[in-house]
Structures are given as structure tokens and as C-alpha cells.
Design a binder for these strands. Sequence first.
DNA 1: CCCCTGAGTTCGGAAATCGAACCCTAGCTG
DNA 2: CAGCTAGGGTTCGATTTCCGAACTCAGGGG
Lengths: 144, 144
Amino acid sequence: MRVVDELCTVSLPAALLGERWTLQLLRQAFLGTRRFEDFQSALDISRSVLTDRLGTLVEAGVLRREAYKDARTRYEYRLTEKGLDLYPVLMALRRWGDRWMAPEEGPSFDLSHRSCGGGVGVHVTCEGCGVELTARDVQVTPPR
Amino acid sequence: MRVVDELCTVSLPAALLGERWTLQLLRQAFLGTRRFEDFQSALDISRSVLTDRLGTLVEAGVLRREAYKDARTRYEYRLTEKGLDLYPVLMALRRWGDRWMAPEEGPSFDLSHRSCGGGVGVHVTCEGCGVELTARDVQVTPPR
DNA sequence: CCCCTGAGTTCGGAAATCGAACCCTAGCTG
DNA sequence: CAGCTAGGGTTCGATTTCCGAACTCAGGGG
């Protein structure tokens, strides 16, 4: 990667999340998965790669590896603040999946606002005037 | 992948976009890149893999391959409606990159609302009461 | 005719992934 | 206390995927 690194701040996250399995791991993490074994069996990923990916994510500060006792010392991987802040990315992905790749009978999980029961939306908006924006409404200005 | 396929609609998009280079290709596409050679030199990806990835994206309906004349027949890859609708995903990625991986002097590209000049924000909100949501505010309900 | 360009394809070697087996630790079983 | 079990990894040989560089093909241009 040459040019990429100098461009906008999409490319670094894209390099991290664009590694195989990483997005799937995060999805599992947001669904509550924390233990090595559970990731492994949920995703059907090879154990060595799982070790590697979890390590990458921990290094990136997205997950944190923590010991806990359950009659014995075990480890769990939990989202850090930085990791939790990826939520909009996952939600945007989900919204797109719902719209364009849904398996006929709609999403198989239901998300709702814990306190009022409303649905979850993702919006790209103008911070000046507040309207919803599409790619065509946005102007890209190179650094200088 | 066994369990994954049955879960929420994050996993299918995640499998598509989680392939190496795919996110980077999309980022380039949103920046206006359309020609094979331009993707290749912008990303420094090997030509054979580029062929493959562009094909995958075309098959997925995210890009469309179109002939055009520029003194001669050439081809270009353009975002379809389905592809353009991935904008929130890229914006969410960017916002996260700005917050957590910014290279010191802030984002190197500037995005603004074409008609009013305002910044671009990404928000996960409740469609009932309108408040902004984080992962902790959202409840996941299995299918049944 | 020869060269150039865009868009690929082909191919041998390097790197990543896979599946299966193996390791280590600590509690439980008998 | 020997043996079994479970979580969390590591190791290893066989595949797959990726890489870089060279080659192909078609249509201009000089």
C-alpha cells in the first residue's frame, strides 16, 4: 500500500476490518460472545487463525483480554470503548444487509431500543443543516 | 460457516466486505475511481486479484461494468444503487478512523455537504424516540 | 509495420488458511 | 492419586490465496 496510507481515514480501519474474519468476529462480539471456544464454534474458523485475529484486535485496542474466574481461571475477550464505538459500522452493515441481502423473511434478529422499543436506524446527516445525505450530496476536498 | 448464515443480516455483508481489498476498492470507488488501471495503481493490488475482486463485486451487484468510448472502447466499474447505498458503512468507518486512528493532524480529506458546506455525521438513532443509541442501549431479540 | 495503452490472463514462488492432532493446566471422579 | 474433562491455545502438513512479473490481445498512432 502506497498511496492508500496517505488518503482519508477510511483506509486504516478498512485494512484492519478488511482482514478475513475480523468483521465476523466483531459481529459475534457485539452479540455477546466472549470466549475463545464460543467464537470458534460460532464462526467455524480455524483455531490458529482465531488466535491470530483475536491478537490483532487486542493489539489494535478493539478487544481486551481479561482473566475471570468460573471455578477456575479462564479468559474472555471483551469490546473496549474503542471497540464499542464500532457499533455504527456494524449497524450500517446490518441496515445494508437488510435492504439488499435479506433472506426473504427479513432479518433474523430483531434490534430495538431497550428503553422505548423503537427500531434502530442509521443515518448520514449534515451537521450544519441536518438533512440526510447520500454519496451524491457530499463533496470531497483533498487536503490542500 | 455454519451458524453464521442463520444469524442476523450482518454476516452476509461481512463476508463480502471482509474479503481482502474489497473495502479498499469501495473506498476508491466512492472517491471516483472507475478504471481498472486506476484501481490497480491507487491500491497497489496485484492485477489478478483485482480482476477477481471486481468480478465479485459486479456479481454481488455492487458495481456495474460498463463500456464507454474514449477514442476507443474501454471499460469502467461504477457503483450501482446497491453500491451507493453502502455509503453509510464507509462513512461510519471514516468517523471511527477519525476518532481512533487519525494520523495526528486529522483526516486528510475533507467531506462536506455540497449545498450548505456542513460536516458529515453518522448517527445510530432510535426510530421511535429519536435519541442516539450505543450498543448498550440496544436489545437483541432472537428470531423466536 | 512497430509501438503504445488499457484490460486482462498466466505462472512459479511466497504467504495465509485449513483441519487435525497435540499440549498444558486445574478441577472433578472414583 | 490416577485418570478424565474442558478451556485455550500451539504445531504441522496440505491447500488456497496472493504476489510480481511476464505475456496476451485489440485498436489506434506515427
